[in-house]
Design a binder for these strands. Structure first.
Length: 498
RNA sequence: GUCCCCUUCGUCUAGAGGCCUAGGACACCGGGUUUUCAUCCCGGCAACGGGGGUUCGAAACCCCCAGGGGACGCCA
């Protein structure tokens, strides 16, 4: 029997996501329970969005949670390299096979033509997808264009009739008509593979036996299976996990919920509690225990105990669980050490001290001034925002626009934050001191505090976002209707929202 | 719009045809312990989406509907 090998394959395009940790946890439990291996592969084929920092952060966050892997870009292994950007030669080689067998074809269609096609299809309310235009090109025509060096992509052929039937470990048989499947681009015009292609090639070469991934991939599984078939490879067994949800049941997103693992670390959650909580999303111990370690989960693991309703990520329950860990599992000595490392991390303290040193006369002045760096949401209410000239509507506007602006920022350095604030204040035609007032209250809980721009850059995007959201809620919140109006205004003066 | 997946308390879930008057946990409410508060303990509130079947018997199996979610990118 084949050795069980599973993987987590994050894309380094942002903060470490709890959804990644969730899928990693189940892959790891499954593999280890079967005496197999769990590996990590970086899917960085999106050259524009992938960053080295994101990759480093993701690896660090997964390690923090204790979700270690036996092969990966950092630890190496026999089936490397484990970074897709370092495997280009392999993809180039493999695509030749498909081109030669006629299972893939070159497509010279321009973005303009594709857009027009899309618009037309929307108008006609017909199925969306590539129309096969370049499939009709003769060999000579293709050769001519290649010689001219016309930019192009490589797409896969899809059967015109019939269904793709496959088996999902949790859902049983799934049937999707081939007519529903688009002629997926396999190689982009930059020469790099798309997810679909690289993923299949790598899973094969890395001998992945079971693909446990999010439900969002169900509809593209036929493409993947077809590629295995074209290559003559044995496909892995698929398992699609339910998606983690926001309280409104939509797919977990940072717009509605803190999704970064680092947020939970910075808010003072213990890694054991976070990973324990993730293990409760769609899964229960056979004996009903709610407090368990990854090792305990692994030895009791049973994939068939996964329930398929998309679980809402409930921060309250996570918080309760974390408290239980802190009270019952952590000795006083450990508590001291853990708290010291969390609160007085040198890189953090080094940035906070210069901000408050000029403002204190005695050490007793420090804690009141710096407490908001070590606290969760500030204790504020509507009266905290009382101001001589700003009313609640303007306050909410400032906070909401700031929130949206921060969300769309590519980098979150001190100067970027300052620039965002000054330019937003100017566009809103507010004096900077008036503009900053609600931010001071939202971030520090007080109108008088250390530099808000510096404070925000120390606290980080996730905590800032949570505090801004909290402040808006305290001011009465924004209804859906108000949000629409605000969003329109925001767009009008050039705000970008993600 | 097309296709796919899903559906038990507000939330996470137990449930493999009779053990279900549907169990546990979070949240919430009440009580007790505590010089306060929290912890802790006890109690309470609260759900099988709807309609048809199958069966002696359905939360569980089948069908239809509804609702929710996801996918439909040269993102992953």
């Amino acid at each position: 029997m084949l050795k069980v090998r599973t993987r987590i394959a994050p894309s380094p395009t942002g903060d470490p996501h709890v959804g990644t940790a969730y899928i990693a946890l189940f892959n790891r439990c499954f593999a280890h329970q079967h005496g197999g291996e769990f590996i990590l592969r970086i899917e960085d084929t999106d050259q524009v969005r992938s960053t080295a920092k994101s990759e480093a952060d993701i690896l660090a966050a997964l390690r923090w949670l204790g979700l270690s892997w036996s092969e990966g870009p950092d630890v190496g292994g026999p089936r490397g390299p484990y970074r897709q950007s370092e495997r280009s030669a392999l993809y180039s080689l493999e695509i030749k096979t498909l081109l030669a067998s006629g299972h893939a074809f070159r497509c010279f269609c321009t973005a303009d033509r594709l857009n027009a096609l899309r618009v037309q299809q929307m108008q006609d309310k017909s199925a969306l997808g590539y129309d096969g235009h370049c499939l009709r090109l003769s060999q000579d025509e293709v050769a001519a264009r290649l010689e001219q060096g016309v930019e192009h992509v490589i797409r896969m052929r899809i059967p015109e009739e019939g269904d793709c039937v496959f088996y999902d470990m949790l859902r049983g048989e799934i049937r999707i008509a081939w007519q529903q499947i688009d002629m997926q681009v396999l190689i982009k015009s930059d020469g790099l593979p798309t997810y679909h292609f690289a993923n299949v090639v790598d899973d094969h070469h890395m001998q992945i036996s079971h693909v446990i991934r999010g439900e969002e991939w169900i509809n593209s599984t036929p493409k993947h299976l077809l590629l295995y078939q074209y290559f003559g490879w044995t496909p892995p067994t698929y398992c699609h996990m339910p998606l983690l949800r926001n309280p409104d049941k939509s797919k977990l997103s940072k717009r509605k919920n803190p999704t970064s693992i680092n947020y939970y670390r910075d808010m003072g959650y213990l890694p054991q509690a976070v990973v324990n909580y993730l293990g409760q999303m769609g899964w229960t111990m056979p004996d009903g225990r709610e407090v368990f370690t990854v090792a305990e989960m692994t030895s009791a693991f049973d994939l068939s105990r996964v329930s398929l309703g998309g679980p809402v990520f409930d921060v309250d329950k996570l918080t309760w669980l974390n408290g239980k860990y802190l009270r019952e599992q952590v000795s006083d000595e450990d508590f001291i050490a853990l708290y010291r490392d969390w609160a007085f991390a040198p890189h953090k303290v080094a940035r906070i001290v210069p901000l408050l040193k000029d403002r204190v006369d005695r050490f007793t002045d420090v804690a009141p001034l710096a407490s908001f760096f070590l606290a969760g949401l500030p204790a504020i209410d509507a009266s905290s925002f009382a101001h001589k000239s700003l009313d609640a509507e303007v306050l909410k506007r400032v906070l909401q626009f700031t929130l949206w602006s921060f969300e769309s920022m590519r980098s979150f350095s001190r100067d970027d934050i300052e620039h965002t604030c000054t330019s937003l204040a100017a566009r809103m035609e507010l004096k900077i001191r008036d503009f900053l007032f609600p931010l001071f209250v939202a971030i520090s809980g007080k109108a008088v505090s250390t530099s808000v721009v510096d404070s925000i850059s120390i606290l980080g995007l996730d905590i800032t976002r949570a505090r801004l959201r909290h402040a808006i809620a305290v001011l009465g919140g924004v209804s859906n209707k108000e949000a629409k109006v605000l969003e329109k205004d925001f767009q009008q003066f050039g705000g970008i929202s993600d």
